[in-house]
Design a protein around this nucleic acid. Structure first.
Lengths: 182, 182
DNA sequence: ACATACATGTAAATAGTTACATGATTTC
DNA sequence: GAAATCATGTAACTATTTACATGTATGT
């Protein structure tokens, strides 16, 4: 599923400007998809060209004029079709995991710092998801499910970090000592 | 952290051919990084050019000749330096989550199928990780940690899918009925 | 007979990010 | 006075995948 399609999906939930779609990627969709302006605006232009979305210009006081995009019936049909043909693939890339894999090559202070940063980030992500879950009435069942999915992951990860983090630091130190004096 | 560096990291654990490095990405590193031949071979060529790795050609009976790469002292130093400067960022992209977000646009059978596929995939991933964890003596502490990390995530996700999956299908059906007859 | 494992490599295509350009308004 | 929010857009760059090219050996 590419950004073009994702924009179509976002608009299937209601009209929005490019800027507002970016906000959606930073909130509701943040735990499973990212997108920058550099991909959203060209996507919107292409979808307009294809007749899958339309827009009206809205002049505002004290704010720049914005283009409010709406999905067309053709767009709605196309999105439903693309969705049916989408395979549920997943991809995950983690430099945190790379750092852990080679933790023995890191100075102890850096390792401790990285573990603390990761814990803090998991905590922050968990709070963000819980906040969206609690303070949003207009969520579909499916969105609530994805939020629960994210909350579950982050809760179990937080528990792991808190009980296993310090232990790892000690293990690495022991491993280093053994290696230097066998 | 790019593929060039990751290849350097893989070789810091022991000498290997390009083909064997690919295998590492499919096993030990599979839960947090992916790489194809199209990125590994050029990476190895570049690292050789930079003097960070060296190789010897090994002729085999009944198998094609292979290049066995080793990390040089300069390579080891460079990798440690790169690692210290790597930030623990993470990126996750999930078409499964996209499908769930727009689950109300999917035919019921397709939704059920996707949920079952996802459950099966989580199960498979969990088993793979547990197998690597159990049947591998040469794992560093850090690698064991990443495996526990992956196992934890998949265990909690599996529990969620089993208790929440069917419920979601029912909720979606109810939502659809309400929408058509308000 | 067909797929998979072994083994290396290149070129084209893809899909995206980052940085730039522009500018008013509001909050700290 | 600096930073963030609102708002749109382009162009260069980056990193990676996919598909192609080539070939033997083994398992199903």
């Amino acid at each position: 599923m590419d950004i073009n399609n994702l924009c179509l999906g976002a608009l299937s939930l209601g009209e929005a400007s490019g800027y507002q779609i970016k906000k959606m990627f930073e909130k509701q969709f943040s735990h499973f998809q990212a997108a920058s302006f550099g991909s959203i605006y060209p996507a919107l232009a292409k979808l307009t060209e294809q007749g899958l979305v339309s827009f009206r210009e809205e002049t505002q006081e004290k704010r720049p004029t914005k283009k409010v995009f709406s999905i067309t019936p053709a767009g709605r049909q196309q999105f439903a079709k693309n969705l049916r043909e989408t395979e549920p693939s997943e991809q995950y890339r983690s430099d945190f995991m790379v750092l852990m894999t080679f933790a023995h090559l890191l100075p102890q202070e850096r390792l401790t710092e990285v573990l603390e940063r990761q814990t803090a980030q998991i905590k922050a992500e968990l709070e963000t998801l819980q906040e969206i879950y609690a303070n949003n009435q207009r969520l579909t069942c499916g969105m609530r499910f994805t939020l629960e999915y994210g909350i579950t992951v982050n809760q179990s990860l937080l528990a792991l970090m808190e009980q296993r983090g310090d232990q790892l630091v000690l293990e690495i130190e022991m491993e280093k000592r053994e290696a230097s004096a066998p």
